[in-house]
Design a protein around this nucleic acid. Sequence first.
DNA 1: GCAAAAGTGTTGGAAATACACCCATGT
DNA 2: ACATGGGTGTATTTCCAACACTTTTGC
Lengths: 246, 246
Amino acid sequence: MLADEKLVLLKTAKTLQAIQSEVENINRIALSVDCVIFGFDENTLKVLLIRSDLKKYSGKWSLLGDLVFPKEDLDAAAYRILKQRTGLSDVYLEQVHTFGTVNRHPAGRVVTVTYCSLINVQHHKLNILDNELHWHDVKNVTGLAFDHQQIFDNCFEKLQKRVQEHPLGFNLLQKKFSLRDLQNLYEAILNIKLDRRNFRKKFFSMDLLVDLNEMEQDVPHRPGKLYKFNYEKYEKRVKKWGGIDF
Amino acid sequence: MLADEKLVLLKTAKTLQAIQSEVENINRIALSVDCVIFGFDENTLKVLLIRSDLKKYSGKWSLLGDLVFPKEDLDAAAYRILKQRTGLSDVYLEQVHTFGTVNRHPAGRVVTVTYCSLINVQHHKLNILDNELHWHDVKNVTGLAFDHQQIFDNCFEKLQKRVQEHPLGFNLLQKKFSLRDLQNLYEAILNIKLDRRNFRKKFFSMDLLVDLNEMEQDVPHRPGKLYKFNYEKYEKRVKKWGGIDF
DNA sequence: GCAAAAGTGTTGGAAATACACCCATGT
DNA sequence: ACATGGGTGTATTTCCAACACTTTTGC
């Protein structure tokens, strides 16, 4: 290192103690996690909401969230909330955005990190014991407490985008599903109608569905074949260049 | 509201005071912002780094960051850092991810929200007065302090993806640029070679470049036409369905 | 006139779209 | 037999990739 570089270092470098002092004493802020938990049932995309904890917002619905403990990893806090509320631990969970305006929470300065989760409603149906916890059709989600409407909208938009580029959707279905199930799912998430033949062609051409040689049961019409998604094969793929397009 | 719904509310609703108490006393965590500031110069993508504040990491480079003040919006903190370091205030800035493992920072529990910024190096060149602040070719960025390498990698990947889907890149160029400039930019960010004719065709077909009827000056070869990006037109676009593809 | 990069079109293949009929099952 | 949705194929169009020569300018 050159001599004058050393000089500058001496002038500007803070000691670890100095920073520790700042971290411990001055600038501490409450941190929370809010989870937007999506499910798919009756061919409808649902989101799990609870009545607001705060009396001020009683009657309003809010996302599932909690403060992060001082010695808890951020992701761990999200998994904790999910486990507490749904009983599920092996689920898709992804961080989405952090909301940190000063006055977003009435109880004081709380910065919240939002997570999006996709779960299979059939698998955890029995874990909803709390009367105040309900699945809501995403089309009817309005007027949430705090800034949760904004958080939900943001998360839903990201989901719509991401589900087209990554195989997330399968987390919302049973392990075995028909192509009709899959198409219904995409139509529900994206709120569009898709051509059935082209939809099938698309998924077959991806070559990531495994034909289980099983049929749907108890349907009042010709049963469809059941498939599962081949995650192993997908992971090995080298993603190809998508091209500039906006 | 039904009677038993009220009952549950009475049992579970916390008072505002109770939450305020939690927010104020128990679960407070230091929050920082780290900015990954990209520039484009000499046909190379650069990132702005500073020598680590901490003596423990002296010699290592780190991202530009600072603690968030208790009464400061998160985004405002990112803009503040950018302004302090580059002198620029009207820049592209976007939140990317929040890193919050317990032991990521040696000074204690610090959760950091990362932001990505794209600035025009020509416009702020004179503001780098600090000897310890330097532009680094992104290809040579290794071994950053703390978890900043991970943060940088994450941010760079997101940039590569996002620049293909949104007109971010123009923030790195002068207001007036040639198609060659633009192509060099994309080749630098994505680290690939593109066909010049197809590249031009693509951008012309988008119909978002305004021909300024000006030519490059002082180039030792045939000068190219200069263009600017039509943000107004872009904003009015209804983004079309991209299609399922993974 | 030479070096260096600007500017320009065509063609073939791949993928997306639009579209209609027969088939298997339950009732 | 009929109602319901499963399953399939083809023609058209659109988009992308590959590819080479002429033009303009500075030196």
